[in-house]
Design a protein around this nucleic acid. Structure first.
Length: 649
RNA sequence: GCCAGUGUAGCUCAGUGGUAGAGCAGCUGAUUCGUAAUCAGCAGGUCAUCGGUUCAAGUCCGAUCUCUGGCUCCA
């Protein structure tokens, strides 16, 4: 057989040759240093036969980062072996440890176990030590092909492996990887020996995980690890985690007094504190202005509705798991509203509509309630009661695309305003196998095509995710990546041919006939709770002036400057700015520190000099630290701050 | 909901069966100071809750609740 090297040269090799054979043919030094390889761009290891005519490239200790998924996978095996030895040392027989899957993942790896007794997080350092022993033993990792019957016999004690092996085709050999005493069913690829695995790894956490990801299956114990080619990369990753902890909106939410969650009020039901309320009101004001410009009309609807409303809309039947239980009032059943759309449809239906009236764009900051599983609740990002920046556009089919593009434009504006430039679009289409969908195939296909056309016209990156659609129509979600690389799903736009049908709404066309409008559901922020949660982490609590709940701290140097400070405060306040005076008996240094810790973007320091000239000394927080300006005229400064506030700069 | 962990003052945390502690925040007093902590004093607690073991429980055991990390789910 023959393969091709990266420079295009052909290399002749014996039949069933592996990447190691290829390396040996090139030189003994390369064979020594080789860790893994790619064949036709796909990662493979040194012991798997190469495909005939493949373009191959060897990965050595010079570029181990190219084989990340390979060594992470091998580290999962090393961990799996270490956990086995850990329980053997505790006196359990070898068969007591049963294993699920153990793949490489982003940043590391995990392995699922069925253990004789639970593993605790404090046991992880010991497992890690055994892993390092296994690496120290420099065990050769070998590959072997076994027949199905032999494989079943070998893993007879492990029901998970038996299940996996049984599902493999009968006629193909099953591959095993072996290192020392440890054998595992595995497709590979793997590093050539445990001694060549990088030392830059760390076991981070344990968790429960259902076998094969289904709630109906038994729960297994999962151990997570992170791993990189070099210690430097591992350190950088751990630092990033640390940074994420500092930015955690739950921590900042408490420190900056933005919101609180009180178990007596109810879990998943956040209370917005005065500072957080300022933030939220700035956001809604911003969006209201935009919506006004774009021809939206505000509406207000109640927080509960007659059960019949949700039966008509289908929400009651389709989302029974996540609705709050109905309440009986007199002889009727009511439910906390899980969605605003049924109410908005009834507003549309409140009078006859002509084709001349369309599009009708109804907007509401509408609060909805959904039963989320208790284990899912998380700060502001996952709650049971939240307010959507919701709107429903009722339009003629020929207006759909224009309306859709306008919504897309609004969404992009929103994301840009908050500096969320790293965004991608996710088009959720039908799952071809699914049966939860309502409406005709024809309408679904039309809507899916419209969305894809609009998104590609805007020219932003998008992916198509079959099965991600809502039950009533396809949707477009926006996923942003924050400053530390995490992805968040924010707003959504959904085309809906179904609700107009279910509620039998119509408009009178030019031809005098009744026609069915199309609906667009859209929420650029998604939920205000979640958006604010993400915004807190995005800015790390350092909000731009227009959003900062506390914008200006006026710091008198001594008590005799308090009156002047108060005069400035009143004037800024009258202009609509949020200013406060720190008239405590602290020294100025302490007042500056207080303002810094509260992340107040602008400090005005006033002493004798300033008071004399009706000036201020300005200290502003910047990403690098702070910036100082002395002797700035107060009138100029007020104008400057007002300008920045009003333009949301 | 499931698995594991966690819970001590408003916050951050110490307290390994024998008298509940510290720093910060708060209050009072003194200090009036030029760009990240002035000093002193005072007050603050059913150690999540309920039950058990013990002469004695913040500490050991059980149940419940909260929160955390995951899993599953997410219109």
């Amino acid at each position: 057989m023959h393969v091709f090297l990266p420079d295009g040269k052909q290399l002749d090799l014996p039949e069933h040759a592996t990447a190691l054979d290829a390396a040996k043919a090139i030189g003994p030094r390369l064979a020594q240093d080789a860790l893994a390889a790619t064949a036709n761009g796909v990662l493979t290891d040194l012991v798997t036969p190469l495909p005939e005519g493949a373009e191959i490239s060897l990965i050595t200790k010079k570029n181990p980062e190219q084989a990340q998924s390979v060594f992470r996978h091998s580290l999962a095996h090393a961990m799996s072996q270490a956990v086995g030895e850990y329980y053997e040392r505790k006196g359990f027989p070898k068969e007591a440890v049963k294993r699920g899957v153990g793949p490489s993942i982003e940043n590391g790896f995990y392995q699922d176990f069925d253990l004789p007794e639970p593993l605790r997080e404090e046991d992880l350092p010991e497992i890690e030590a055994i892993m390092r022993e296994i690496i120290g033993r420099n065990l050769e990792i070998t590959r072997s092909d076994v027949g199905k019957a032999a494989a079943l016999a070998q893993f007879g004690y492990d029901p998970y492996k038996v299940e996996l092996i049984s599902e493999l085709p009968d006629d193909q050999p099953i591959t095993f990887y072996t290192q020392g005493e440890y054998v595992d069913l595995c497709r590979g690829p793997h590093f050539p020996s445990t001694g060549k695995l990088p030392a830059a790894f760390k076991l981070t956490s344990t968790s429960g995980a259902y076998w094969r990801g289904s709630e109906k299956n038994p729960i297994m114990q999962r151990v997570y690890g992170v791993a990189f080619a070099t210690q430097k990369e591992l350190d950088a990753y751990l630092e990033r985690l640390e940074e994420a902890r500092k930015r955690d909106h739950r921590k900042l939410g408490r420190e900056l007094e933005l919101f609180t969650i009180d178990p007596l009020v109810g879990k998943g039901l956040p209370l917005w504190l005065p500072n957080g309320t300022v933030l939220r009101e700035e956001l809604t004001r911003f969006l209201r202005e935009q919506q006004f410009q774009r021809g939206y009309q505000g509406v207000i609807t109640p927080n509960i509705g007659n059960l019949e409303l949700y039966k008509t809309s289908g929400h009651y039947q389709n989302y029974s798991d996540s609705n709050f239980s109905p309440i009986t009032v007199d002889d009727e059943m009511y439910m906390l509203k899980p969605m605003n759309c049924p109410h908005h449809v009834r507003i549309y239906a409140s009078k006859p509509r002509s084709y001349r009236d369309l599009p009708v764009r109804l907007a509401e900051f509408g609060t909805v309630y959904r039963y989320e599983q208790s284990g899912e609740l998380n700060g502001l990002t996952r709650v049971r009661g939240f307010t959507q920046d919701d709107a429903h556009i009722f339009c003629r089919p020929d207006q759909l695309k224009k309306e859709f593009l306008d919504v897309l434009d609004l969404t992009v504006l929103v994301l840009r305003t908050f500096g969320m430039n790293d965004v991608r679009f996710r088009v959720g289409t039908r799952d071809p196998e699914g049966d939860k969908y309502v409406g005709s195939d024809e309408n679904w296909s039309a809507a899916e095509a419209q969305i894809i056309e609009a998104v590609s016209e805007v020219g932003l990156p998008y992916s198509i995710e079959p099965g991600d659609a809502a039950f009533y129509g396809p949707k477009l979600d926006f996923v942003v990546r924050d400053v530390i690389g995490r992805e968040w799903q924010l707003g959504t736009i959904q085309v809906d041919y179904n609700l107009p049908e279910r509620f039998d709404i119509s408009y009178t066309g030019e031809d005098g006939q009744e026609h069915r409008p199309v609906m667009i559901h859209r929420a650029p922020f998604g939920s205000l709770e979640r958006f604010v949660g993400i915004l807190i982490e995005h800015y790390g609590g350092d909000f731009p002036l227009w959003l900062a709940p506390r914008q200006i701290a006026i710091i008198p140097i001594a008590d005799r400057h308090n009156a002047y400070a108060e005069e400035l405060r009143a004037e800024l306040h009258a202009a609509g700015l949020r200013a406060e005076v720190d008239d405590s008996s602290n020294r100025m240094n302490a007042k500056v520190r207080q303002a810094e810790l509260s992340k107040i973007p602008v400090m005005l320091i006033v002493g004798d000099k300033e008071q004399e000239e009706r000036a201020v000394s300005v200290r502003e927080r910047t990403p690098e630290g702070h910036k100082e300006r002395k002797g700035v005229g107060f009138g100029d400064l007020k104008a400057e701050l007002l300008e920045r506030y009003q333009t949301r700069a």
